[in-house]
Amino acid sequence: MTGERRDRGVALARAARAGDTLALHELLDHLGPYVSRVCTPIALADGPDAVQETLLVVFRQLRSLKDPQALYGWVRAVAVREAVRIARRASRARPAELADVPAGGDPQLATDIDDVLARLSPEHRAVLVLRDVEGLDEQSAAALLRIPAGTAKSRLHRARTSFRKAWSA
């Protein structure tokens, strides 16, 4: 995300906290795609529910956010937590069986990537999103997920191994 876009979000959050519901409206337009980008790879088919739950929490608690500069870190933390919660609730968590990983060169590769993702647990997908999509280091990803750094590292290793198998098999 560009600095300009980030500044825009922070300015909207400040205006919304000051009582302007039109700024709140623009903030919803602004945050929606970002929340979707975090939630969808974790919650998969339940992505839209996770996005709505995240935004409900964010809008309800916006008033209590101490520092609007921390908006994105806070929204990301809520989005990951809600996406994992929704995915778990939907009982879609099935651990990856590497033997089931699809073969490389398959014309249905896009679907296969989804298949590999779906076989990971929501927690594994969350680590993958935080490290490889959001670019967080292991320590930060572990802190956000409230797990030890070693656990984050092993989850990431397992998730990446599943993907590597998918391409090289």
Binding site: G32, T40, P41, G47, P48, D114, V129
Partner: peptide, 9 residues
Amino acid sequence: MTEPTREMD
């Protein structure tokens, strides 16, 4: 990674 398939209504 998977793209959103359905937006909030």
